[in-house]
Design a protein around this nucleic acid. Structure first.
Lengths: 342, 342
DNA sequence: TTGTAGGCGTTATCAC
DNA sequence: GTGATAACGCCTACAA
């Protein structure tokens, strides 16, 4: 199938020198005569020589590859994070192997295994919905391959985490709705066994409590935040209630936008009947009518931060083990969907 | 840094057999005694043995890795395609190395080089805005490494392409606006040197022509479709014109949504004053008010198709060289943003 | 400044 | 069924 590869030996032979010198020249090793080097580099270009990473990696025990496992590739937030990671990593000469867990532990474990076999220099991971134990990461820990968790992190594991203050964000969002006069705030969110959703929920509860509102379990809906789930819980549950909530804190912008559409269809006025606040500050929140209030979540910056920490560590410029948790800043963004008072 | 690796030799030694047998057992080679195999597999698990892909790849000259180069990671469309590719590829035991060209030829070439050095088994690529020559892909062609272009394809190169009928889609979109009574249809789109935008533009022109409307160059705006560009061209140009166009065909949904927001802000009534149609059928087009008409572009299916073609080829089940172009089906989706007549 | 030689971990070929 | 052995292409002590 493939043509004969051109190797450093071919170059060495044609130039009647040793492969070692060729290898050195191609790596810009200082101890090599400038002229010899030029001859080597020129010939390499002429022959279209391409270094074989496998041989090199095999030899050097380093791959310049970072593995990334995410629940799903196709969300605005995730692709922003990935874009940030890729940018920094690529500039530093690192490659990215990306795979999706599709929100299941098994696929996540399987992907981790593959990453491990591929000897990634580091692993970046945002956990699946149903991941509860972290055995599948043990091989990395044993071999001291750095792991960075982001967004959906593992509480019980002692590793570097990059995330936002979900409690605070949840608190802020809820508090804002309360300040706008909401008394019964519906909270639609994801699986509470994941830190992101749990912390936001705790923030929600605390904000209620601090404002003298009793938490009502009927106002909590957990699902996978898919369009189907949103449609289902609104049409078959919320909209059928005798008393409609007057506020909605829903933890993703696409879901918020979709919920808004359904509510409007059903004749609910936003924000008058129900004030809405989302999460993430995706473009989608800005183009709805009314525009949706949200929490700004800097995905791109998160990605860049992750990559930078990793690369500094891999280059030995800093030690990841001293950096336990990085919290990125979020902001409350108020738009018309939640402005009952003007 | 890393602990000692466990190799097939370690296993062989402990079991007092040869490494060759261990290797065979671990690959399910038929010619190995069931009992020996069990002993080997058990010990391998116990020791936490992990096959070293580099050594294996080096030896087998095959990497089970597919390189993917896209203009940008962070678009709804792109992440859907990637998600599709990843799903199929991963199930078939292939890994994905993904990188972004950030719409520049240079980065694209550099990424292609890296992919090549990593000896990817195949390359999947959607071209950058300013890529005009394809020298950077020559090494792949020479070595007969399959390349699949998708979405933004190269006309001049003889390779497999997966795309939609952009001409037809552009025609349909425009025709629809005309049928709704539009006479002056603004077309906001990307760089016309890219097939996707050029073909849609040609479709647009042809639809005008077929309906007796003269093409007016003032109604064509090309930019990078970023929020900034959209805002700029609308506020500083279109909205200042003495006569506003009565239709808008804009070739991406996020841009359409953003344009809609700006137009509404400026007091333009949609669809009465201006009918709008976008492209892609992203969620964003559905949650706007009015919901935006668009062309359904099956990104996920495109991704899966790409991966499937590639994998069939790599497995020798079919030959990619006989498959030149795959055109996926698109549909016109009519929503309120373009419905002048009811 | 350059060359020699050994090994990174796996797999394929050949014997037995 | 199993074992020796020779690559795969590169890198790096060490020697010259």
């Amino acid at each position: 199938m493939s043509q004969k590869e051109i190797t450093i030996y071919d170059i060495a032979e044609k130039l009647a020198i040793s492969a070692a010198t060729v290898s050195r020249a191609l790596q810009n090793h200082p101890a090599v005569n400038a002229k010899t080097k030029k001859r080597i580099v020129d010939l390499a270009n002429e022959l279209g020589y391409q270094s074989n990473k496998f041989a090199s990696n095999l030899r050097k025990q380093k791959t310049h590859t970072i593995g990334v496992i995410v629940p799903r590739l196709n969300s605005a937030f995730m692709s922003t994070v990935l874009s940030g990671i890729e940018k920094v990593a690529n500039n530093a000469g690192y490659n990215l192997i990306i795979s999706q867990s599709f929100e299941t532990h098994d696929k996540e474990a399987q992907n981790a295994q593959t990453m491990f076999n591929n000897r990634v220099d580091a692993l970046v991971i945002s956990l699946a919905y149903d991941t509860k134990d972290y055995k599948h990461l043990n091989s990395f820990i044993k071999k001291k391959i750095p792991i960075i968790f982001f967004d959906r992190v593992a509480d019980k594991i002692d590793a570097t985490k990059v995330l936002i203050d979900n409690f605070k964000a949840g608190y802020q969002a809820t508090e804002h709705l309360i300040q706008q006069g909401c008394k019964e705030i519906l909270h639609i969110t994801g699986n509470l066994s994941r830190n992101v959703y749990n912390d936001r929920f705790e923030g929600y509860k605390k904000a209620l409590e601090d404002n003298g509102i009793k938490y009502d379990q009927k106002l909590l809906i957990c699902n996978d935040l898919s369009e189907k789930a949103i449609e289902d819980c609104l049409k078959n549950d919320v909209l059928k209630r005798t008393k409609l909530p007057d506020g909605l804190f829903i933890t993703s912008d696409p879901s918020a936008a979709y919920a808004l559409t359904i509510l409007k269809e059903a004749g609910v006025k936003v924000p008058q009947d129900m004030a809405i606040i989302g999460f993430n500050n995706d473009l989608i929140s800005r183009v709805c009518e009314p525009a949706i209030s949200t929490i700004n979540y800097p995905g791109n910056q998160m990605g860049e931060t992750i990559a930078r920490i990793l690369i500094n560590h891999l280059n030995g410029e800093s030690d990841i083990n001293y950096m336990n948790t990085v919290i990125l800043k979020t902001d409350l963004i108020v738009r018309n969907s939640s402005l009952k008072k003007k």
